[in-house]
Design a protein around this nucleic acid. Structure first.
Lengths: 200, 200, 200, 200
DNA sequence: TATGAATGAGTCTTCATTCAT
DNA sequence: AATGAATGAAGACTCATTCAT
């Protein structure tokens, strides 16, 4: 750990620099893996010198952590993005389809991030904690949406969790695996049907 | 240069050694992460010298790959273990409950392995391939079981895949996350109900 | 992985460092042999850390290659140093004596370099190529000198090559072997006489 | 260095083994270079176990040293092979041509040996000594031949040495370098002419 | 603030040599 | 005498982090 003082940037240009380090650093790490990305590359991608990185961050890990905080919620738990609407024109089926569409559009980076965070959890409790928090938040958010729209059921916690999980799997599947013999459109319909069924 | 030839052990004690390297090496890697485990530690855990490791394996990665081949199928896709029974006394619900029970019993190592493999996929195509193969095998296996027991449905491929996914998530959830407010017993029932529903 | 980029030093001090690595590294390698010299020693001799070596060079071999490029021409083929003069006051005999004198003055390092390069040729085609190029250059240079000074003969290529060879052997002999029963002064005269005879 | 007792083999099969280790070991080392050849390869090439090597030799270097002793004289100094004939039908020109022909036929291995020995000299005084002894022996042998055949001249030592050198260079040239623009037949004639001239 | 050159501990891998069988 | 499995020291190279400018 550096014993250098970490500074919070005040000037516009500095803020910009810090933001770029997080953005491009997180992106690189997610693309290539934490251990296959070195700080020189991150600095280069962010358009700064290697030295400056250590003025805004404690260490390489810190860049990743801040990247998770900043980006992963929307990437990993797209369900959080469903807006809470009036019961009148709310249609869960449409919303779910939209969530999946958006998530798939975010594609590769979201999946890479997922994998990298997923993995680093087990050597880094702080990563695990952030991830867990976000998952909980996503689940709670979903519960809130359902309640706001008068969709009630028993075991709402467990079901919400399951829904978040299934959507996550589906998106991952659509973006990545490309099993040659799968009909992804049908799969999506099945998933949504399953979710709706769960909530009946 | 790389002139060292890989030897396949013949003598009992040597076979034992190779097995230990895979076993303890894979375990360590899964526990601490591939990049946080060095060959010296693996050798020590297996009770051998560092040199011997390179008589049985091409490199550190090879240990992990062989570990996956050997352990991950049953760890990651416990569904593969369902035996194909006679239609007469086959009960899917019971089988699924057993699968989950066994999988959870396989405890931490399975989840760690999952995470590490999941992560290394994206920097190592060979890992990705092995993982994909095993997933496909698990899915096909499930389909076979269903057919053998006269359980038919449309979109069997997609549904089987989904089932494998959901069970995987559930097990992961039960073993690891420990969301304080979740009733895992209920969750398991919900999952199984959902699966049975899917196959109706 | 190999992500480290090779930097060409710009600042004065860095240029100095790179130069030192080549100089002292090449010297050490020539003295002790390529395989008996490790990168830590080279770094130490050059007064830098081991890490810096890999910012300026691809690998240990690269240090040696650049050393050859830089030093070996004048060391191994001192004939290249004969200046092209006017026919009027050009005297081949004098020139040859000077070449030998200079070469012998370059002493040990030249001979060690010779041996090491000579040897590494057969496991390293790039070394072989550089060496061959320099030999060809030396031969061509000699031919040019002879022509410029109106010394003509048949089979000029073959003879020039032979001359380069003989001078090389002589210098090696004078510097190194110290056969106790040899009269090196006489030997030098014989060599020069032989060369002059060849060109008659 | 091993503190194991070195045994001199007595039984036929053992003698054979030792001979093979020297033969194939020396060959391999000359082909691939001392540092690129490991003892496992040598043992394999000789058809013995690695352990046995250390019953007949102190260490890897010892194999090479004994190889030099045994093979290099005829390989490196083919002139030693000229038989001492009667003055009546002795023709130096013919003899020299034969020496070159034989030497070239011995080709690659002789040249590789040359390079390897040449190189190892400078990190190993014992190698240097053996090499020097053989060179001196070759020179003396040549002198003896000349004297026996009534070829006398001043500075016979120096000239003989030079002759050994030139022939060595020529053979090396013919076997290896393949300068595209050289007429090797002419070169050989020039060399022989030069030698004959030297002895006039 | 910013740069990027410099550091050196840490890692994988090889291989001469030993030793249990 | 022989085997070949086992050892572990040594070396090339990387990279997070620091520091002189």
């Amino acid at each position: 750990m550096g014993n250098q003082e970490i500074r919070e940037p005040i000037q516009k240009r500095s803020i910009e620099k810090k933001r770029n380090i997080i953005k491009y650093g997180f992106e690189l790490i997610c693309e290539k893996g934490y251990h296959n990305t070195n700080t020189a590359e991150i600095a280069k991608a962010a358009g700064v010198s290697t030295g400056i990185v250590y003025q805004y961050f404690n260490d390489k890990r810190d860049i990743f952590l801040q990247g998770i905080e900043q980006y992963s919620k929307s990437l990993l738990f797209p369900i959080t993005e469903i807006s809470i609407k009036n019961p009148k024109n709310f249609d869960l089926k449409t919303e779910l389809n939209n969530v999946i569409k958006t998530s798939v559009k975010n594609h590769k980076i979201s999946e890479s991030a997922h994998e990298e965070i997923y993995s680093l959890q087990h050597s880094d409790p702080e990563v695990a904690q952030i991830f867990l928090n976000q998952e909980i938040e996503a689940t709670n958010r979903l519960i809130e949406i359902l309640e706001k729209n008068n969709i009630t059921t028993t075991n709402i916690n467990e079901k919400a969790h399951l829904i978040v999980s299934i959507i996550d799997s589906l998106c991952h599947e659509i973006v990545y695996h490309k099993h040659s013999n799968m009909d992804y459109k049908a799969m999506q319909e099945i998933v949504i049907e399953t979710i709706l069924n769960l909530l009946k």
